[in-house]
Design a protein around this nucleic acid. Structure first.
Length: 801
RNA sequence: GCGGGUGUGGCGGAAUUGGCAGACGCGCCAGACUUAGGAUCUGGUGUCUCCGACGUGCAGGUUCAAGUCCUGUCACCCGCACCA
């Protein structure tokens, strides 16, 4: 047998599949549909990463199996091509982002094709294509029309290096997500999408879908729903109502002070009445200097100032209580004011200790002289609540009293904030809005979409964070679509998340110029049956795209309320040193090198074999060579091939067991054990010294999703025809068992012997065989048998005394 | 601090969910073929005081039987983080 020429063979079959549209999805086919989605890549200049290969290989295997099982499979790919790295390259090199993007897309496409992924290449989408972003803008305008878009002047996270406003999501930990510089706070008028309006729907929708439990949990935590109560505290001096939010209204009798955020408007409103306004202003200035990061990092050290001149009244007890300003209360959550119950809240406790405020216990169970007690217990010092031991009952009762007195009511809050939806950058979708001095914000008419990005020479952002578009008069100056008067175009662009919020819809009908996708195509393909991607996208991208999809559902544009029926996530590939791969660490692996030196099939098998698909695992070159050896041995089967139309009895159960194992493991994404099972079978075949045609045919088919090139070649050579057009092989549960099996015999839980028994033997027979064994007989000789256990097909345990 | 996850040979990892711990692969050892081996093939390979015992981060417990269940504890990783 001549050596396997992986380079020539892989090229040959890639060309064949492409030429024959082997993996083309057919909208409207009578076959059952299966829509498998992987996260489309950002086409960076660095090219593909082995992480991409692993991310796509999972559903690649599932898709190839599904096709062999007779499904009409949609397995598309595209490019999420707007974004800062490309623009930064353009700024540095002067090459237009369009050109940079096109080059990178070509590079990525070639790399993906070399790995032999069975994508439907006729459906590629590119978010920066006018024909695509026309519909991104269209959806934005629909949201605008439906009141989900608004502008607001607020403190924003601003990256001084990228000169761009960032969402909370993009500035986690006080560092810019892109360049990792420190974020500063800046007041700016920005665009928002009212995602909070969908908070409940996004939460409830999780019941309709099948996401991995940790994925679901992350989304729930991100949305962060809490239920509690709003309560109005009257201010003694002026009758003003200071409204607070609390999740623990049951502790209302333990309130000894109140705290408001430094930015709370009541300070400005009554600044004349506040005796120590200078001290408050100074404190406020100090807080403004701190970044949000510093503010949240200095958790232990509580600071604040008492307001002299405002006194609150507890609505239940009528007691007067002091009001403080402190930056541990945020304006952005709840009402920006809290009732403080130091006995039962750790933050309030720290503050009260520092400022010498009373601490009143209202729930028994802890030691409030040492620390706050946040657990359950019997209510005390709480008037009508005294004696209640159940938190729920206490809350119910308090809510009743608050309602009766008209000073409070039940309420919910979400951690999720509205989505800051703009960037002062060039390389993004222009926001299709015109600012008219007479008409205000006017949407660009639908028939004028796409609002195209104008050509630019200088991509440098403006000095105060203005978009480069602001410098282009021909773009900025326009007529108001409503009144025809002189107007100015919005110059901000959409954030990178925009294009990826609906790409899965476009795949259904990617070349449609009249709709973002036809109703028929959407009805046929949606929802996505299985979506796999990285954990890092589980909160942002997944929440955003579910939001857009739910909105489109509400206005009747899509047929399903949820976009993704199932979501899984793969683990990272770490560098050979066990650290996260990064250019700076120099521990990256280039998939191109692997394909060059070992072939695409080896790369594919290895990324799936290296460990649990959902777990991170380090790259190991030697281990990968083991996969190369495996495929070489598969090739070598041709040397020991004999005729035969049926599995031989020697391999009967192994064949059925392996087919079953591979079939089931693929569905459970346990690709590593599926490969291991095929390796075991191969070892068995070589030990036997031969394989017949029926056995080889089945083995090639189950290996095909993992290593499509070599299996296609061998199939074609030996059987003629195209493997990708065959049927997935079946197994018979009844034939998965051997007639004679080995079981272990324990005496008092210690293994004493292994015996061969008929698979169907009952306990009495098995025990007879077991006791006839010398080692077992010796171990039980002269002892009393207390108990005898036989676990069918597993083991025997004889308990003696 | 809160939430989630993980701890198993020299390494990556298996273990039908309470039933033979270490499948499969790497590495290593020995042998074969070779002028040669960083190719290929065959065999071996958890540890030790090796006809026996000990072994799944650590300490207990339940059970005929525990990597798996329970209690406590330690370490590491990943999210979120003064969310009222």
């Amino acid at each position: 047998m001549e050596r396997y020429d992986y380079a020539a063979t892989e090229k040959k079959w890639q060309e064949y599949w492409e030429k024959h549209d082997t993996f083309k999805a057919e909208t409207g086919s009578k076959k059952p549909k299966f829509y498998a989605l992987v996260e489309f890549p950002y086409p960076s200049g660095a090219g593909m990463h082995v992480g991409h290969i692993k991310a796509y290989s999972g559903l690649e295997v599932v898709s190839r199996k599904r096709r062999l099982q007779g499904y009409n499979v949609l397995f598309p790919i595209g490019f999420d091509a707007y974004g800062l790295p490309t623009e930064n390259t353009a700024v540095k090199t002067g090459v237009h982002p369009r050109v940079v993007t096109d080059n990178n897309i070509v590079k990525f496409t070639n790399q993906l094709k070399r790995v032999g992924f069975s994508f439907d290449w006729s459906r590629v989408v590119d978010t920066t294509d006018e024909k695509y972003y026309k519909w991104t803008q269209w959806i934005f305008l629909k949201m605008f029309e439906n009141g989900l878009v608004f502008r607001d002047k607020t403190l924003v996270n601003y990256c001084p290096s990228c000169k761009v406003v960032l969402s909370n999501e993009d500035s986690q930990g006080g560092k810019c997500d892109i360049c990792h510089s420190d974020i500063v706070q800046k007041t700016k008028e920005v665009w928002y999408l009212r995602i909070t309006e969908y908070a409940d729907k996004l939460l409830q929708g999780l019941d309709e879908v099948n996401y991995l439990p940790n994925i679901r949990l992350q989304q729930e935590n991100w949305i962060g729903k809490s239920t509690g109560a709003f309560v109005n505290f009257e201010i003694k001096e002026n009758g003003e109502k200071l409204r607070i939010y609390t999740t623990r209204p049951d502790t209302l009798y333990g309130v000894t002070f109140m705290v408001i955020a430094p930015e709370h408007p009541i300070i400005e409103k009554y600044r004349d009445k506040i005796a120590n306004i200078d001290a408050l202003d100074a404190y406020k200035a100090e807080c403004a200097k701190k970044s949000e990061f510093e503010r949240t990092q200095l958790v232990k050290d509580k600071t604040g100032v008492k307001i002299e001149g405002l006194t609150a009244i507890n609505p239940l007890t009528g007691k007067e209580i002091p009001v403080y300003v402190a930056d541990y209360v945020m304006m952005g959550y709840g009402t920006g004011a809290i009732m403080a119950v130091p006995a039962h809240d750790t933050r309030d406790y720290d503050f009260a200790k520092k400022f010498g405020i009373d601490i009143i216990e209202v729930i028994k169970g802890g030691d409030i002289s040492k620390e706050a007690y946040t657990g359950d217990g019997e209510m005390v010092n709480s008037d009508v609540l005294n004696g209640i031991t159940n938190k729920k009952d206490a809350i119910e009762k308090v809510l009743g009293i608050l309602a009766e007195k008209g000073v409070g009511e039940k309420g919910v809050q979400y951690k999720m904030k509205d989505w800051a939806f703009n960037r002062q950058r060039y390389w993004g979708e222009p926001i299709p809005i015109v600012h008219c001095p007479h008409c205000g914000m006017v949407p660009v008419p639908y028939d004028q979409l796409p609002l195209k990005l104008p050509p630019v020479d200088n991509f440098q952002p403006g000095s105060d964070g203005e978009s480069p578009l602001a410098k282009i008069d021909s773009f900025v100056n326009c007529k108001c679509p409503k009144c025809g008067g002189d107007a100015r175009r919005e110059t901000d662009t959409m954030p990178q998340w925009a294009g990826s919020s609906w790409y899965f819809l476009r795949y259904c009908d990617p070349n449609n110029d009249n709709e973002f996708a036809s109703k028929e195509a959407l009805k046929y393909w949606m929802p996505v049956d299985w979506y796999n991607g990285g954990m890092e996208h589980v909160t942002r991208h997944m929440i955003y795209s579910r939001f857009w999809h739910k909105f489109l559902y509400d206005i009747g544009e899509v047929p399903t309320s949820e976009p993704y029926a199932k979501r899984t996530a793969q683990g990272l590939i770490l560098g050979p040193d066990g650290e996260k791969m990064s250019k700076s660490r120099g521990n990256t692996i280039d998939p191109n090198d692997v394909v060059d030196n070992y072939g695409a099939d080896v790369l594919r098998v290895y990324v799936l074999f290296m460990g649990d698909y959902e777990q991170a695992a380090p790259w190991n070159d030697s281990s990968m060579k083991g996969c190369k050896r495996f495929l070489d041995r598969i090739w070598g089967l041709q040397d020991i091939l004999v005729d035969g139309d049926e599995y031989r009895s020697e391999l009967m159960s192994s064949m059925h067991k392996t087919i079953k194992k591979v079939s089931e493991d693929i569905e459970a994404m346990k690709f590593n054990t599926a490969v291991a099972a095929m390796m075991s079978l191969l070892n068995e075949i070589y030990a036997l010294g031969s394989i017949n045609k029926a056995e080889l045919r089945s083995l090639l088919i189950i290996l095909n999703p993992f290593a499509p090139h070599i299996t296609e070649e061998m199939y074609n050579k030996i059987f003629g025809g195209i493997l990708s057009e065959q049927e997935w092989v079946k197994y018979d549960d009844a034939l998965c068992v051997d007639s004679t099996i080995e079981v272990a015999v324990q005496v008092n839980g210690k293994i004493k012997a292994k015996i061969m028994i008929p698979a169907e033997a009952e306990q009495a027979e098995v025990l007879g065989i077991a006791k006839a064994d010398d080692a077992v007989a010796a171990a039980i000789d002269g002892k009393n048998i207390v108990k005898e256990i036989y676990v069918k097909g597993r083991l025997v345990n004889i308990v003696v005394k």
